[in-house]
Amino acid sequence: MKKINMTEASAIIGGTCETCENTYELMIVNGSDVCAAVTTCTDKNGVVTRSYKVSDKNNCPAIG
């Protein structure tokens, strides 16, 4: 049996695949409405990360 390192093992056991979803959220920052593009990613171990980027307000759902 051949010994392998962690990099080789992660490529075999599920790889390093990440699943991401993009959404838009209206947020309040310093009292102002801001539309944010939100990217939510889940790695192969189930760890969830979110990143935010300012976007055009037309992309966000209306509040009503």
Score class of each variant (00 low, 15 high):
6 M>L: 15
6 M>I: 14
6 M>Y: 06
6 M>G: 14
7 T>H: 12
7 T>Q: 10
8 E>Y: 05
9 A>I: 10
10 S>N: 06
10 S>R: 13
11 A>N: 03
11 A>G: 15
11 A>Q: 12
11 A>S: 08
11 A>D: 11
12 I>W: 04
12 I>G: 07
13 I>E: 14
13 I>P: 00
13 I>G: 04
14 G>Q: 06
15 G>M: 12
15 G>K: 05
15 G>D: 00
15 G>T: 11
16 T>H: 11
16 T>G: 13
16 T>D: 11
16 T>M: 14
17 C>H: 14
18 E>Q: 10
18 E>S: 11
19 T>S: 13
20 C>F: 07
20 C>M: 09
20 C>A: 12
21 E>F: 13
21 E>C: 14
21 E>H: 11
21 E>V: 15
21 E>T: 13
21 E>S: 09
22 N>Q: 14
22 N>T: 14
23 T>G: 08
23 T>N: 05
23 T>I: 11
23 T>K: 02
23 T>D: 05
24 Y>I: 07
24 Y>C: 11
24 Y>F: 15
25 E>F: 01
25 E>M: 10
26 L>A: 12
26 L>K: 00
27 M>A: 04
27 M>K: 04
27 M>P: 01
28 I>P: 02
28 I>Q: 09
28 I>D: 11
28 I>V: 15
29 V>W: 08
30 N>H: 13
31 G>D: 00
31 G>M: 06
31 G>F: 01
31 G>Y: 01
32 S>Y: 10
33 D>I: 12
33 D>P: 06
33 D>A: 12
34 V>N: 03
34 V>W: 01
35 C>R: 01
35 C>A: 04
35 C>W: 01
36 A>V: 03
37 A>H: 08
37 A>P: 00
37 A>K: 06
38 V>S: 06
38 V>H: 01
39 T>G: 02
39 T>A: 03
39 T>S: 08
40 T>Q: 08
41 C>Y: 02
42 T>A: 11
42 T>I: 11
43 D>C: 02
43 D>W: 07
43 D>F: 09
44 K>F: 12
44 K>Y: 09
44 K>V: 10
44 K>L: 10
45 N>T: 13
45 N>M: 10
45 N>Q: 09
45 N>L: 13
45 N>G: 12
47 V>C: 04
47 V>Q: 00
47 V>K: 06
48 V>K: 10
48 V>D: 03
49 T>G: 00
49 T>F: 03
49 T>W: 02
50 R>K: 10
50 R>C: 08
51 S>L: 06
52 Y>L: 08
53 K>Y: 05
54 V>M: 03
54 V>T: 01
54 V>G: 00
55 S>D: 02
55 S>E: 00
55 S>C: 02
55 S>A: 14
55 S>Y: 00
56 D>H: 00
56 D>S: 06
56 D>C: 01
56 D>V: 04
57 K>E: 00
57 K>D: 03
57 K>M: 13
58 N>M: 03
58 N>I: 03
58 N>S: 11
58 N>V: 09
59 N>D: 03
59 N>K: 09
60 C>A: 02
61 P>Y: 00
61 P>N: 04
62 A>N: 05
62 A>R: 12
62 A>I: 04
62 A>G: 10
63 I>R: 06
63 I>C: 07
63 I>T: 11
63 I>P: 03
64 G>I: 08
